[in-house]
């Protein structure tokens, strides 16, 4: 979340990364929906929904960062306060929802109530906390730890190149998320976290290329 990135030299890169991650996530989502159209497998649909939320989270983040810069002089008016709150909470909600749905798909949970309960607990924690960013990064790290752990386990069961790329990509997302936790006190960790995120999304892109390669 670039609301943390108060490092001036990194701001432009931060915006560019938001756009790049959004494009990759939304492309993967579109691809999953196309697979769903052909196979009618529910898991492909949920996978598509999860990356749609993740992609939208980056786009909303990008949009509100631009808004913040463009209308910084209007910070006292009610509308600016409303937009600023939306810009703070909406990307976090979308990101948690996206990765939560991905976890639901990865662990093949059949009961949708479980997803709703987990999602509600996370969001209530986010809204009631005096430090929402800490709660957000903590929840995200926990979800990513379970997803990455599952992908690593499944790689050792099947030992396929595609599984390996996915496992490494999610491990990098996890490393990134852990660095974001530390970034609350030391901003340089935010830059490191974004760098790990970049590697992760590039690996996801490589994965799509390998899948499409005949």
């Amino acid at each position: 979340m670039s609301q943390l990135a108060l490092i001036p030299w990194f701001f432009t890169y931060d915006l560019a990364l938001d756009v790049l991650f959004a494009v990759i996530s939304l492309s993967l989502s579109l691809f999953a929906f196309k697979i769903f159209k052909v196979t009618a497998q529910k898991q492909a649909r949920f996978f598509g929904i999860s990356f749609l939320f993740i992609g939208l989270s980056y786009f909303v983040q990008f949009f509100f960062s631009i808004f913040k810069i463009s209308f910084s002089d209007l910070s006292s008016c009610k509308e600016a306060w409303f937009f600023s709150s939306c810009g703070f909470y909406l990307p976090m909600m979308l990101m948690i929802a996206g990765f939560m749905i991905l976890m639901y798909t990865t662990f093949e949970i059949k009961n949708r109530s479980v997803l709703c309960i987990l999602l509600l607990i996370s969001l209530v924690g986010l809204f009631l906390s005096s430090n929402p960013l800490l709660v957000y990064y903590l929840v995200l790290t926990l979800i990513l730890a379970f997803i990455a752990g599952s992908f690593v386990k499944k790689y050792f069961e099947k030992k396929q190149v595609l599984s390996l790329v996915t496992a490494i990509a999610f491990l990098f997302l996890l490393f990134g998320s852990i660095h974001f936790l530390f970034s609350l006190n030391h901003q340089v960790y935010y830059v490191l976290g974004r760098f790990f995120e970049l590697i992760a999304y590039l690996l996801i892109l490589v994965n799509v290329y390998l899948v499409l390669k005949r």
Binding site: I35, Q43, T105, F151, Q160, S163, V165, T166, L210
Partner: peptide
């Protein structure tokens, strides 16, 4: 489905769906 099977299979394998 048959025509796109290879791509579908690789996609499902890579994310363990």
């Amino acid at each position: 489905f048959l025509k796109d099977y290879e791509v579908i299979k690789k996609f499902f394998d890579s994310y363990h769906l």
